[in-house]
């Protein structure tokens, strides 16, 4: 299989995506948008998945938690996967609720031995319920999670090494956290086992003071393409690279140009790996 480059499906981008499918290898659809969808909407997604590679991306299961992932939510995810037959599905290394409180977004979990064990247990629960293990995505954070005794890189490495569905590596999240917490993004990539990366997310954010907010409302910044090149150089397996955009949508041509730039970064990384191997 070759490297693939795709876009996150958003209803606002539908016309632009559908008229440019020949330039988009794969589509990533937010699973939660279809958890309670009408039969008509579900049929449309199933038809799309029958014609073009589709991945499902869940955002609200809360897998990185000492609380067992809710079996009813997993059952809904399983039904959706049965109906749509995606090529793969993914979730985040985040907790989203606790003690009856919905945080409303993905919170970075305390990074410690207990959260590694609990997260892996949830991943196995999800794999059993859905029939396929999710690829797990690293999340961005504005706050260094309290209760952490393990560095982010080592925590991610432990999860990646033992997670049957592999890693969805969000490079803007890596970049944002490196800026927000003062470490070198490349050193994180050198620590995690890149051979377990199956998917990559690209996105953009904005500066708020001396921190980066991963808001998916801006273009992919230059340093993220450099990280992509690095991963392509050091991860020999085929990669699926997805560009995420959640609003402030530019013309579809601008998103496709970012995909082309991602293709170039991966090609450069692959070329560098080839030249290293020849020496």
């Amino acid at each position: 299989m070759a490297d693939r480059f795709g876009l996150g499906w958003r209803d606002d981008l539908a016309a632009g995506i559908l008229s440019n499918l020949h330039r988009i290898d794969v589509l990533e659809v937010i699973a939660d948008d279809y958890f309670h969808a009408s039969a008509k909407k579900l049929r449309a997604l199933r038809d799309l998945a029958a014609q073009h590679p589709v991945l499902l991306h869940a955002v609200s299961l809360g897998m990185a938690s000492t609380i067992a992932v809710d079996e009813k939510r997993l059952a809904v995810m399983a039904r959706l996967c049965d109906a749509v037959r995606p090529q793969a599905w993914s979730e985040h290394l985040a907790f989203v609720r606790a003690g009856g409180i919905e945080i409303g977004h993905m919170a970075s979990p305390p990074r410690n031995a207990a959260s590694i064990d609990a997260t892996l247990a949830n991943i196995h629960r999800a794999a059993h319920a859905v029939g396929a293990a999710p690829a797990m995505e690293n999340v961005a954070s504005l706050i260094d999670p309290p209760g952490s005794t393990i560095a982010e890189a080592a925590w991610l490495a432990s999860i990646a090494s033992h997670s049957p569905g592999g890693l969805l590596l969000d490079l803007h999240n890596v970049y944002s956290n490196a800026v927000n917490f003062g470490y070198d993004a490349r050193s994180l990539l050198e620590t995690i086992p890149l051979q377990h990366v199956r998917f990559i997310h690209l996105a953009g954010g904005k500066w708020i003071g001396n921190r980066i907010l991963d808001d998916h409302l801006h273009d992919v910044p230059g340093p993220v393409y450099e990280l992509l090149r690095f991963v392509a150089e050091h991860a020999p397996q085929p990669l699926t690279v997805i560009l995420e955009r959640d609003g402030a949508y530019p013309p579809i041509g601008a998103l496709l140009a970012q995909l082309d730039r991602a293709r170039l970064a991966v090609a450069e990384g692959r070329k560098a790996a080839y030249e290293h191997a020849r020496v």
Binding site: R97, A98, N112, A114
Partner: peptide, 17 residues
């Protein structure tokens, strides 16, 4: 260090002004 009670405390901190 992670427990459901600790996560609940964090969730409250993140959502309750």
């Amino acid at each position: 260090m992670s427990t459901p009670e600790f996560e609940a405390f964090l969730a409250r901190l993140y959502t309750d002004e």
